[in-house]
Design a protein around this nucleic acid. Sequence first.
DNA 1: CGTTTTTATGCAAACGGTTGCGCTATTTTA
DNA 2: TAAAATAGCGCAACCGTTTGCATAAAAACG
Lengths: 333, 333
Amino acid sequence: MATIRDVASRANVSVSTASRILSNSSKEKYAAETQERVREASTELGYRPNFAARALVSGKTRIIAAVFPRFHDSPFTALASLQILSGIEAYCSDEGYHLLISSPKIQDGRLDRNFVNLLSGGYLDGVIMDGHSDISPIMDFMSRLELPLVVLGTYPYQHHLRSDNQMGGRLMMEHLLALGHRQIGLIALRDIEARMLGVRMAAADYGLDACSLPCEYGNFSEQSGELAAEKLIRANPDLTAMVAFNDRMAMGAIRRLQEIGYQVPERISVVGHDDLPRSRDFKTPLTTVNHRLSEWGGLAMNMLLALMRGECPESITIEPRLALRQSTAVALG
Amino acid sequence: MATIRDVASRANVSVSTASRILSNSSKEKYAAETQERVREASTELGYRPNFAARALVSGKTRIIAAVFPRFHDSPFTALASLQILSGIEAYCSDEGYHLLISSPKIQDGRLDRNFVNLLSGGYLDGVIMDGHSDISPIMDFMSRLELPLVVLGTYPYQHHLRSDNQMGGRLMMEHLLALGHRQIGLIALRDIEARMLGVRMAAADYGLDACSLPCEYGNFSEQSGELAAEKLIRANPDLTAMVAFNDRMAMGAIRRLQEIGYQVPERISVVGHDDLPRSRDFKTPLTTVNHRLSEWGGLAMNMLLALMRGECPESITIEPRLALRQSTAVALG
DNA sequence: CGTTTTTATGCAAACGGTTGCGCTATTTTA
DNA sequence: TAAAATAGCGCAACCGTTTGCATAAAAACG
């Protein structure tokens, strides 16, 4: 590979001149003719600045890392991670940064060696970390580094980006209530308390005893949605609507309800949560809550860039919104 | 951050001594007592070798890149990429490497600048590239770099890792044929010719006129599977089995067939392809073809590591295998 | 025309490691 | 006991950039 020395000597200038001209940042004035010569030499030799040398002197690598600690069965699914990741990647690339990904395993509070080296070896200009699970061991360690950091999700940190799950719950419930439903069953998830809180608050707003709503818990899967729906409707035949805490369970619910003779949405409405790509194409396109995942990457990167510039950006709470489709309808007379 | 000089002076040794002891590679002998002093100083100061400095002198960064050029609607889905990616990541981390991901956009043969810098700036020790789409602009460029490279998928390159799609097709068909089916409909995909070829060859082996099999083309989606299945069975009521070129279409097909009164697998067998996570939990768990995606990452990394050591590893063709579940059964009398 | 300012360029010191070679003691060998 | 081998350690060059400062030439100024 051609070095800047090669370029300089071919253009008959000093190394510093070549450097200043090629990294056209500096305000120094150079004769147009000199600039020309240098640039020409550079392209002729196919010169590419060596990144390590730059990093060494500038202290910047133009690499940022997305850290996704390994989840067990977190509410944060693989698909969601991928969506966020690709948002980050696109933005990174536009801004001239490169994206490194890391999924450290945390075993009984010990971080793996490779991960520690990555963080403290100066590889990185900044970090975006998924905080949908408990990442305290990592955060303890990170707090000793002075590395720009944005945390995604519920884990508490000064600079974060998270979704308003309470509003998410509220949106589902208010939608059904506004359609006139009062007999509403819940297909819930234990892991997402805020969402449940939102549901309950909306119910309370309409004068319903929030805690006495029929409720079954699922485990994220379609199958668990089927089971829960059947249980609910058998125990409470007068239900006219169901709130499912994610789309997969909602789809399972709809399928089972239709199998056992309940029309959706004519007889019973079902609202989901997450707005998966599939949900739009589902047999009965799902009314659901969209958390605008595709925007996360860009927003997180913006925060991180601001931090790296030394600013102090505001944290962001993303307001989810209702995606109105065909699985809900007004309550029967 | 403490530098090696700090460590050296605290341990009362020279920088070179400290370096050699801490990067315990060298065969040089040092007094046990000296080693002790140096290591102690190192931990006391929390010394972490600066990666850029190392990279500069050694020419190695211990970073490898996974390049996934943006697909349009390639047969290679997001989920599959993620699965492979996490395989690579896990292996990387175990081997002390870091993983950078890049999804360059290719517009009319022009590569984006950031991507070019990444590849030619010495950021990387090696590259794993997804070659399921046409990546010739990238490959033209890469061929001028002497960077260890492994290509995943069909794009031709000396060091590759790919799936035997022909055998994949063959497996589906042979399975049905072995179960006694002879009236078989195809829900196919245009993009995967090899798979079709395998299907036809298997048919031919059993003396069936391969080209006269009833066939509908889908577009990857569940919905298209539903449509295709209904069309096929209406036009050919005596079909006893269907081959779907992916699982999503297979699931659509099964759902529709059951809706219109055909029991699966009792009346009609359906075999899918890909073995998605969902396929196992589907109402009628899918008999399908598994391409062992979780192994790809490790295998690719092994090839790459060998290349980086200067060896010349063999390319790999992964043999898919049949995942036998409940959506297929012996043909009726 | 001498002096100051500006313009255009070069020198050399960093940045933080690694590594070839050389230098002492000390031990081994003949 | 002298010569040779070896153990243990340090000197200093080098990797490829960036950048503060110096310098020479040209321009502006009084």
